[in-house]
């Protein structure tokens, strides 16, 4: 009986979900993220050089990734509902808010380009923001300590803007996001080694 209910729910929820992602997939602007690669010359060329089939392939991949994330989410929601934990929604929101803030978006050295991991993290952010339409966020752009602080101030700004632009493309209104660059001035990890640097090159989200 329970299995059957699950199946029905899955079918009912997944099919519109699939339609939604498929229609979104066209809007999923890959070249837009390439725009934020640190190599400005690629900006114009990126959109023109990416072939149509390449775009389609990326969109398909994207749709599949989105789909699996979505299914996972529905599954979790269903489990929660069926286990009768709906009373704990308040606590869940707080937990998810903390999770939302604690997950940083990471960048490679001297770059504001969004890796696939960074994009996945941003998709989770977008999803959370869709589910919490009244929350505005500050996106902080940070750098590791290497390089000069003047340049890192600009690079941090670029990283924050890069994350913001990606979220705008996923349908989050600009008005809900503010960016602040901290350059290299506010490291998450104070050590002076590769792993600390990797964790300091980040976009950090704070809810307003």
């Amino acid at each position: 009986m329970r299995e059957k209910l699950c199946m029905i729910l899955a079918v009912v929820l997944v099919i519109p979900g699939l339609m939604f992602t498929a229609s979104c997939a066209k809007k999923e602007i890959r070249p837009e993220s390439a725009m934020y690669q640190d190599k400005p010359r690629t900006r114009q060329s990126a959109s023109s050089m990416t072939t149509t089939s390449e775009k389609d392939r990326l969109a398909r991949e994207q749709a599949l990734i989105d789909e699996s994330a979505r299914q996972e989410k529905f599954r979790r929601e269903e489990e929660g509902r069926l286990a009768g934990v709906s009373e704990r929604t308040g606590a869940d929101t707080r937990i998810s808010q903390r999770a939302f803030m604690s997950e940083d978006v990471y960048f490679s050295y001297d770059s504001a380009a969004l890796s696939s991991n960074a994009q996945d993290a941003l998709r989770r952010k977008a999803e959370w923001m869709q589910n919490h339409p009244n929350v505005s966020v500050i996106i902080e752009g940070h750098c590791d300590e290497r390089g000069t602080n003047a340049y890192n101030m600009a690079l941090g700004d670029r990283r924050a803007e890069s994350a913001k632009a990606f979220l705008v493309n996923l349908g989050i209104p600009r008005s809900r996001m503010t960016t602040i660059s901290y350059g290299e001035e506010s490291p998450a990890v104070p050590s002076h080694n590769e792993s600390a640097w990797a964790r300091n090159r980040r976009a950090h989200f704070v809810t307003e």
Partner: peptide, 22 residues
């Protein structure tokens, strides 16, 4: 990125940092 301006003493030239070449 274009940042860190520095003026020549006569103010006719400005050095700056740019990542326009990568």
């Amino acid at each position: 990125i274009d940042t860190s301006p520095a003026w020549s003493p006569d103010g006719r030239k400005m050095a700056f940092v740019s990542n326009r070449s990568g």
